[in-house]
Design a protein around this nucleic acid. Structure first.
Lengths: 162, 162
DNA sequence: TTAATAAAGGATAATTTTATCCGATATTAT
DNA sequence: ATAATATCGGATAAAATTATCCTTTATTAA
């Protein structure tokens, strides 16, 4: 990499750190779309899902496997196979369960400053403030069901992609 | 990688996605330590900083450069050189400025589900809920000064590492 | 003015995350 | 049974992040 390029790179490209990992984002969007289809009695396949949520197909497949192993979605092999969620489950599955299946419990558990042993006894300087933010996030994730996610979508599917 | 290892790996190691990037965590911890020393009238060097916050030295150097270029900390070369923050600045510099200098504005701006064009007009299914969480985080970061970060530390420095 | 010191900066490596490819496996329909 | 279909799983590749090494530059003190 040339000097100019690197300089510009460092100057213009800070870390792209987001709230959730890409895997998790795709997982949530995919689950939401699958839920929407399931509410309509339809099973849907990988290709369709990836197209509808605008995600890379093979990578999405891995994430769906993970969700399937965690019993968040059901998978059926063979012709007319695909992914689905039992209708009765759709309002019981929360964003929290999906995030946990993919990103683990870091978002709940870890210290905001990356300290390994940060707790109420030996807190980092922002421990309490982070706990407050985290609790808010946790509460939101645990109280948002897939059903709720689909609610606004039924008008048109534009909002799961782009 | 053998089958067993991979299987166990996938099973046991979900993504390690945290709220901030490592770079950002080190940046906050380093700034806090530099602020503490500066309050005491002391300039402090890379080696000491990395030791005190338990971070990789060379990587920390890069982050300190970034903070220096963003005028969050001052750097002085040569013998008895090192890093420092003007005393009058310590209660003016916020966590938000540090996070912005390192991770950019993604934590404020990006969509929780990774959609490029998500806004109040065309919201993703969790847009409003994420905005609420984000606003909380933003407010916290913008209202927490480096001075506040150092406050609890003066008893003993244990809390910026481990 | 020289030697020592410490940050700056360039190049590169290691690790993690993201992404793709392809053969194996299971299921359905003919 | 067989062919077609679609997920599963292993291997690998690409990209981003994290980390290290080493040379250069600036500054201080002797």
């Amino acid at each position: 990499m040339s000097e100019l390029k690197l300089a510009l790179y460092l100057l213009l490209n800070p870390n792209q750190h987001e709230m959730f990992s890409k895997a998790c984002e795709y997982g949530i969007r995919a689950s939401t779309y699958i839920a929407l289809q399931s509410l309509d009695g339809k099973r849907t396949g990988l290709r369709d899902i990836a197209k509808k949520i605008d995600s890379p197909e093979a990578f999405t497949a891995k994430i769906l496997q993970q969700l399937s192993r965690n019993r968040i979605i059901d998978s059926v092999k063979g012709p007319s196979g695909g992914f689905q969620i039992e209708k009765e489950q759709i309002d019981k599955i929360t964003l929290g369960q999906i995030v946990y299946a993919i990103d683990g419990d870091n978002i709940y558990v870890g210290c905001g400053l990356g300290l390994k042993e940060c707790n109420a006894d030996k807190p980092c300087p922002v421990h309490d403030k982070f706990v407050a933010i985290r609790d808010g996030l946790k509460e939101m994730l645990e109280n948002t069901s897939l059903y709720e996610m689909t609610a606004g979508l039924e008008v048109g599917l534009t909002y799961l992609k782009r």
